[in-house]
């Protein structure tokens, strides 16, 4: 029989556990350029992502700093940390190309029932960028607008489903 020698080794990969144990970039950014808030408390996962945007030499928008605040399970905290690592220093255009599969791969895999945590991380980033565009009065690209609408719609559905729970 296989010997179990580390916590949750039947559920999470060593990379998930290491990330959970020592997550990067947690906390708040004061005067953030954009904040993305996703998740629902009834489901037990709430993720807030703060981004600080600055221009690079080419005049492109770059994610200069990024931090997360997450209420959630091991997977939610790990995906929060990984998304910050994946996009920090990238241009906004590059950052928006990060997918849930990139998040899962970077963690060496996630249990299927935790896939939604990788979606949450990507959604939080999209929402933070959307918020930044709104705040700076920039024209929102059609693709981003579409993604934002999908996120908002599923959020509304969940909130409707659990209406009255959170009283």
């Amino acid at each position: 029989m296989k010997k179990i020698n580390n916590t949750c080794s039947t559920l999470y990969t060593p990379k998930v556990m290491a990330t959970f144990k020592n997550p990067h970039n947690y906390g708040k950014i004061k005067n953030a350029s954009g904040i993305g808030k996703v998740g629902n408390i009834v489901c037990g996962d709430v993720m807030w992502l703060y981004i600080k945007v600055a221009k690079n030499k080419k005049g492109q928008d770059v994610i200069k700093d990024i931090k997360f605040e997450t209420f959630g399970c091991v997977a939610a905290i790990s995906t929060s940390s990984i998304i910050t690592d994946l996009v920090k220093g990238k241009t906004i255009n590059e950052a928006l190309k990060v997918t849930k599969d990139n998040v899962i791969e970077s963690l060496g895999g996630l249990p299927k029932i935790k896939y939604h945590c990788s979606v949450l991380a990507v959604d939080a980033l999209i929402e933070a960028v959307y918020d930044y565009f709104l705040k700076t009065g920039q024209k929102i690209p059609a693709d981003l607008e579409k993604k934002h609408k999908i996120i908002k719609k599923s959020k509304d559905i969940i909130e409707e489903r659990y209406k009255g729970w959170d009283k």
């Binding site: 408390i41 009834v42 037990g44 959630g72 029932i113 959170d166």
Partner: peptide
């Protein structure tokens, strides 16, 4: 907390005694 189970709602026992999610 039911985070590891397929359904994500927390314990019905704790909700029954009036806890918030």
């Amino acid at each position: 907390s039911a985070c590891s189970s397929a359904k994500l709602e927390p314990s019905y026992v704790l909700l029954a005694i009036g806890l918030k999610p």
